[in-house]
Design a protein around this nucleic acid. Structure first.
Length: 601
RNA sequence: GGGGCCGUAGCUCAAUUGGUUAGAGCAUCGGACUGUCGAUCCGAAGGUUGAGGGUUCGAGUCCCUUCGGCCUCGCCA
């Protein structure tokens, strides 16, 4: 076999007259009868091969039979293309290789779709033939970015004294949080491992073990329904540090993100990354992961609305709800039908029962007035107050939701993002980073009549709120922090509880009994009793990070072998039925086999 | 578990109100061609319209069931 001397994509004018060997796949061929041109593709790019019978007739004969995706090696001389024959679309477009020796290393069936296709091919087919799909340069580029990110991450943490330490994939099931993926044990029949949802407890125990600074690029598993930005199997950049406070963790770890964005995109992230409190984020953006690329902040107008004669508003406020909304600059261009059908249905998906609107227009006297089905319920003074509250101008659109505070925010936050995008209120190529801090430790779960952790149960309260564990748990501020970019959470973490009594108290408030805590976390509580240092950490979602860096909204595009919405791998057909012998060995009995279930249907 | 969109040739898409033999571009196969680069020109082949059932003189089109993909609500401490 001819041994490659250069990659296709790297050849330039400076290689003129050199004899080179390139290997790769036939991207396309143009047979002119006498001259044959082949664009050869490898990981680095394309280069044009020329087959001229006068240079080598044997080669030329073979070249005429080449087909797309055949694998070849070619030896030849690099030469500049003639005047006017350069191809500006190719990085190697200044040169070509006049081939003198050609080896066909493998043939290929005609691929099920074209690698070059400008058209967007059905993803189902792409996933079945993932090895062909990944040959496409934009897919390879994404894999390349992913590789470079992990390399930068490893270098950064190494330079800062972190050790990469692996934690088990076969772990202990903890029923809190997401559903576990379970793995039956053969040696301990009837017992199950769980795949890790995160290495949380192991990394904290590593701190107890004096590893001091740990990181890991680690696969995590959550058996929940996927989304465009969520897979059941995903990768986390997991970090933990000893003898640190929240500021230490944030500054150390925004550093790695800063380096990644600088090196991959040449984007400068402000130092330090600005912070916003959870409360401010919820008040102004309706969500704890605000998209800060544009303003259009939410305003609470309950005080004005409750004085109106609009029953929906007044009764909502009376019942402890709020009337909250936003003012979309230029939003008056939406038609009444856009608002009352499309936008109302949109907020309806998030549980909002209605959407009140006011278009700001000029009347015959030239005064700015709201035009709306509900303005008649407000007197002039109240209308003026509304316009002032929203700083509303002619051509704007005020949209209002009346509901319980959580419900109103839940509808308004996505509405704000949608309008921001539709009205082009931000530059889609911009990145706005923010730390969301000062999260409450708990939120009250009305259904279960108990507290839930906002982050996880190992998050430490701020020092001054420790006393409230006994008296006022609802108002404890935690030492947690989330890194948010453009409305997407890319990481989150906290300073952890290192005192076993405090940890026990938190479990108590979460309504986890002493016995349950012992059963599920006994090993961890025990570790805390043997000199756990103060510690904290963070985890970044690698997949989402790469999505941002490559500008894709589809998480499957940044994972080499992703799964579908039903958790299947279309290439391998996992998950699949297993042999009875395998089940017998595990002492498992399946009530209904896959083929039976499919047979029923 | 709920809601929505989609499924026609290898790929991307057409097909009027239910009406003749389901078309086009690309890919494929054969031929021509010395400078192409989304090559060009000539020709050929390619279809159980995801599957099953129903209505009808007649179904890609309407109805029912079902399979699959995507988006989404719930879910994701």
């Amino acid at each position: 076999m001819l041994k490659r001397t250069h990659h296709c994509g790297e050849l330039r004018l400076e290689h003129d007259t050199q004899t080179v060997v390139v290997s790769g796949w036939v991207n396309s061929y143009r047979d002119h009868g006498n001259l044959v041109f082949v664009d050869l593709r490898d990981r680095n790019g394309l280069v044009q091969l020329v087959f001229d019978p006068e240079a080598d007739s044997e080669c030329h004969k073979t070249a005429r039979n080449l087909r797309c995706e055949w694998v070849i090696a070619a030896k030849g001389i690099v030469r500049p293309r003639g005047e006017g024959l350069e191809n500006p679309k190719l990085a190697t477009g200044q040169i070509e290789i006049l081939v003198t020796e050609l080896q066909v290393l493998n043939t290929s069936k005609t691929p099920p779709f074209e690698i070059d296709a400008a058209e967007q091919v059905n993803e189902e087919l792409r996933l079945q033939y993932r090895y062909i799909d990944l040959r496409r340069m934009d897919m390879l580029d994404k894999l390349s970015v992913r590789h470079r990110v992990t390399k930068i991450v490893r270098d950064y943490y190494d330079e800062n004294g972190f050790w990469e330490i692996e934690t088990p994939m076969l772990g202990k099931s903890t029923p809190e949080g997401a559903r576990d993926f379970l793995v039956p044990s053969r040696l301990c029949q009837g017992a199950f491992y769980a795949l890790p949802q995160s290495p949380q407890l192991f990394k904290q125990i590593l701190m107890v073990a004096n590893t001091d600074k740990y990181f890991q690029i680690v696969r995590c598993f959550r058996d929940e329904d996927p989304r465009a930005d969520r897979q059941a199997e995903f990768t986390q950049i997991d970090v933990e540090m000893s003898f640190v406070d929240a500021d230490d963790v944030m500054s150390m770890n925004e550093g790695v993100i800063r380096r990644v964005f600088k090196e991959i995109l040449d984007v400068d992230i402000p130092n330090p990354v600005p912070r916003i409190s959870y409360q401010q984020a919820v008040d102004e953006y309706g969500i704890d992961r605000p998209d800060m690329r544009f303003e259009m902040k939410l305003k609470d107008i309950s005080d004005i609305a409750k004085e109106s004669t609009f029953k929906v508003f007044t009764s909502t406020v009376e019942k402890g709800g709020i009337v909250k909304g936003l003012c979309a600059p230029g939003g008056a261009k939406y038609s009444r039908s856009d608002i009352e059908k499309t936008l109302t249905a949109f907020v309806g998906e998030y549980g909002a029962k209605g959407l009140a609107w006011m278009k700001i227009e000029k009347n015959e006297q030239g005064h700015v007035v709201p035009k709306s089905s509900i303005s008649k319920f407000f007197n002039d003074e109240q209308l003026a107050q509304l316009l002032e509250r929203f700083d509303a101008n002619e051509g704007d659109l005020i949209l209002l939701v009346a509901d319980k505070p959580d419900a109103a925010n839940k509808a308004l936050a996505p509405l704000r993002v949608r309008l921001g995008r539709e009205l082009e209120l931000f530059d889609p190529n911009e990145f706005k980073f923010v730390w969301v801090v000062d999260f409450p430790l708990f939120e009250w779960n009305e259904d279960q009549k108990r507290y839930d952790s906002l982050h996880h149960p190992f998050t430490c309260p701020v020092e001054e709120d420790m006393g409230k564990l006994e008296t006022d748990p609802a108002n404890i501020c935690s030492q947690a922090y989330d890194m948010v970019v453009n409305g997407s959470e890319i990481g989150g973490g906290s300073v952890r509880i290192h005192n076993p009594q405090v940890q026990a108290k938190v479990f108590d408030l979460l309504n986890i009994s002493k016995k349950q805590a012992e059963d599920r976390f006994g090993f961890f509580l025990k570790a805390l009793e043997y000199g756990a240092p103060p510690h904290g950490g963070i985890a970044f979602g690698l997949d989402r990070l790469v999505m941002l860096l490559t500008g894709t909204e589809n998480i499957r595009d940044v994972i080499a072998f992703p799964k579908t919405q039903r958790g299947q791998c279309l290439m391998t057909n996992a998950p699949s039925d297993v042999d009875q012998a395998q089940l017998d060995e595990l002492n498992l009995r399946v009530q209904k086999h896959l083929h039976q279930i499919e047979g029923d249907a």
